[in-house]
Amino acid sequence: MAGLSLPLAHHSEPIDPTLWEWLSTKMNHMLGVDSGSMVLILGSIIVLFPIVVMVLVWRRRTD
């Protein structure tokens, strides 16, 4: 799988697809949550983080 690498790569090289299959199978087995719910859960985390930071900065500036 030359040229494709793991998520433990130093900067931002692509994840190895073979390893990703291993990992995603394991995660699905462990979590037992359907993919639609996972999209919502992970998507919410991704969206909420910057919003929380912006709110905190806005509150700091208005104090």
Partner: peptide, 29 residues
């Protein structure tokens, strides 16, 4: 760079060559 990149790309091949199971590799990862 040499050591992280080489492991990043060749880790899976190495694990396969050592007959390491999928579950063990994923958990170790």
């Amino acid at each position: 760079g040499i050591t992280t990149a080489s492991i990043s790309v060749h880790f899976v091949r190495w694990a396969i060559s050592e007959d390491i199971s999928t579950g063990t590799a994923a958990l170790a990862f």
